[in-house]
Design a binder for these strands. Sequence first.
DNA 1: CTCCTCATGTAAACCGTTACATGATTAG
DNA 2: CTAATCATGTAACGGTTTACATGAGGAG
Lengths: 207, 207
Amino acid sequence: MGARDGDDSATAGSTLGYALLSLLTRGPATGYQLASRVKAPIGHFWTAKHSQIYPELARLAAAGWVRAAEEAGPGPRAKKTYELTPDGLAALRAWLVVPPVAQPRSEITLKAYAANSGDPAAMAALYGGLAAQAARTLAEYEQDAADMRAQGMDDPAHPRFGNYAVLLMGLESQRVVQRWSAWLAASLDGGAPVPYPHPPAPRDNGY
Amino acid sequence: MGARDGDDSATAGSTLGYALLSLLTRGPATGYQLASRVKAPIGHFWTAKHSQIYPELARLAAAGWVRAAEEAGPGPRAKKTYELTPDGLAALRAWLVVPPVAQPRSEITLKAYAANSGDPAAMAALYGGLAAQAARTLAEYEQDAADMRAQGMDDPAHPRFGNYAVLLMGLESQRVVQRWSAWLAASLDGGAPVPYPHPPAPRDNGY
DNA sequence: CTCCTCATGTAAACCGTTACATGATTAG
DNA sequence: CTAATCATGTAACGGTTTACATGAGGAG
């Protein structure tokens, strides 16, 4: 399963590898630039440190999925600007349509699971704070989304439509955290059942 | 930072360790039982295999956070039933109020980021399928939530209120995946901007 | 003179999954 | 007879974080 050895073609990559290929579809970049690109907006759903990015870029280059142009850099080593190769794009396209598996890791939900064991007031304060933070992030994202729509990024034909799609997911996720945390805080504070503020279901669009 | 060495008190545990302590607040259990408890409902937000659970239980026991009662088991080794100690409960309570950091790993969102590079019809089919799956899961969870409310688990005083809180988060998450995936599929299918079906914001409750 | 940004790497430790290994009891 | 369930562990590997290491150029 660790098919990382470069015999010749179609060696499977890691998710991080595909993430880097995705970032390179936005244009050539150095490892350093990729490390900052994994901050906004995709960083809310996938991150990596430079110490992981540099070796992964080397593997992608060995597989022929990216190509590096070397220049003299600052510091002691050469600066390498990577770009996607046709093979890399093909690999990315193949990976895109593989149904992903859900990855369950949420510490805020795990803590709620043990809510009964905590001090109710302290737990309510924790979740109240999380709700407030989510509300602030939400306001930022809403501004960003409006800006993107103004630039036509809500059109699937726009080259950065993916950024818009990711931002919408971020928006929805923050909305959920805000609503759920506020409900949890209210429940723990009140010590009695609080009905969950379900939004009325918007009508579906055929999917 | 790898303060796992059992000198004496207050050694920090891993998140998995606290997850196991949380599960043990529901009552004593063997490692085997804990491995099945991390399936429903907390498994949607935290999982672990038995190969990770057994060594972690040994570490928790060494730290004095759990205590094992040994019996003759099936198989060649003794069966160990673990229970939470007062120290373990104190450690859990301390961990509960530490603000958690968000852990960003979502392959479905990462793929959307590269949506432009994929075949639109194939990508639409992928996200249409995800939306349908989410809708099915959602229906299940809604039934579960109704059952829990019927048992009074929406009362924060109920010993398993945490299960209900976790399920509500699962419900909301599935709702988001359903709505967002359906929107993405419709956008890719139509090739033109599709307005996002934002639910009207329900009025807030003070948080 | 100091701190920040740009730029690239390696090493050690930890977290998580897959696979290997054993063996009794019960249901089909 | 066979398969599932109960029950506990170890080993190997890959993915991720933290820390170590180097050094130019510009801002304050």
